[in-house]
């Protein structure tokens, strides 16, 4: 079972929580300056080290040997950043079976150790990623300094190398025009706000990612605790906003949500953006406790399956835009039909 098929805390607002540690190995230049020979040597060193630690849990994929569709599908599941899809340097990903723990080799840093969990699970993600980061230090010579901490290619990651982020669904705050103010407050206080696909992406489907900006001067546990405090308040705000919205415009809100569900259940052609936005409405319907709406785990699974890369991967062939829209509509429609049938029986 993949991590996104599991339940997590506060799933009405938080889709997923990620923790990643940036680490580099002594004696090598940072990835953007490594030649192909050193790239292969470092990759081999890391893979051997991980296999020594835990030979069964991880399997390795080399991005250069993957086709475009498979790489897109990885980016859609937040396992690599979209910028890496077209990278010429060979990067590798070590990943466990349920895809909640991974090591990306040669992204901006030599190692990006990532744990991802459903819902708001900062402690679980932190402990899992930290355990692997610490274990890797016992088998690899990690670059660190008594004064600066863990050394990274970009000075924005130095110190703990920790980035903790949560993907949030915030239709209520958007409806009340609160997002801009909330985002400004967060940015002023040392947090970064980005769109659904992270760095450089725009906000879509009423979703945004919040992460820590400061990585130095506090322990990783302190950074996680600060993040938890801020996020718990943000979650509460979003719930209040939704409640207020529902009280003020119940019929309009019901109409919007049930229309989106009807589109997903009946369309013959649907683009990614429209499907994504309709799923966002369905998610809100589920959170508001409306009758006949699928579970968060099903909505998240469907969100991953309908991506441009993932839909082609599922169909097993390259599809043009219209073919993708047909395949996507068919998949979603079947899903909703199955859901209704299962409920009836």
């Amino acid at each position: 079972m993949s991590w996104y098929e599991e339940h997590g805390a506060d799933q009405d607002v938080v889709i997923s929580t990620r923790v990643r540690f940036a680490r580099n190995i002594k004696g090598y230049k940072f990835p953007h300056l490594l030649n192909s020979e050193k790239t292969a040597e470092l990759t081999n060193e890391v893979v051997t080290a991980v296999q020594r630690l835990d030979p069964k849990s991880f399997h390795m994929v080399e991005l250069n040997s993957m086709n475009l569709i498979d790489k897109q599908s990885l980016a859609e599941r937040h396992l690599i950043s979209p910028q890496l899809i077209n990278s010429k340097q060979n990067k590798s990903l070590l990943i466990n079976q349920n895809e909640d723990l991974s090591v990306l080799i040669l992204d901006e840093d030599h190692l990006r150790i990532q744990a991802i969990k459903a819902g708001f699970s900062p402690d679980q993600a932190f402990v899992q990623a930290k355990n692997l980061a610490v274990a890797l230090e016992s088998v690899l010579e990690i670059a660190c300094d008594q004064e600066f901490g863990y050394l990274t290619a970009c000075p924005t990651n130095v110190g703990t190398g920790l980035r903790i982020s949560a993907l949030l669904h915030v239709p209520g705050l958007e409806y009340l025009n609160q997002l801009k103010y909330m985002i400004d407050s967060l940015r002023r206080s040392g947090f970064t706000v980005r769109g659904y696909y992270g760095e450089g992406s725009s906000e879509q489907g009423q979703m945004l990612q919040i992460s820590n900006q400061i990585t130095l001067g506090k322990t990783d546990q302190e950074l996680v605790n600060q993040f938890k405090t801020i996020l718990s308040v943000f979650i509460k705000q979003e719930r209040e906003a939704r409640k207020h919205w529902y009280e003020r415009e119940q019929i309009k809100l019901q109409d919007k949500i049930y229309r989106s569900k009807a589109i997903l259940s009946n369309a013959y052609l649907i683009g990614h953006e429209e499907a994504f936005n309709c799923l966002s409405d369905v998610r809100l319907g589920r959170a508001l406790g409306f009758e006949g709406f699928p579970d968060y785990t099903d909505i998240l699974t469907l969100t991953y399956l309908i991506g441009v890369g993932s839909i082609q991967k599922k169909e097993g062939q390259i599809l043009n835009s219209e073919q993708r829209d047909i395949a996507r509509a068919k998949l979603i429609k079947k899903y909703f039909a199955d859901f209704i049938n299962n409920k009836d029986h």
Partner: peptide, 26 residues
Amino acid sequence: QIHGGHIHNDTQIVPQNIDVEKVKPL
């Protein structure tokens, strides 16, 4: 300028003597 300071604050940074067992869930 970026972090409001330049001194790392983490007592666990002793790579040679890491005991994996010490890092446990909360």
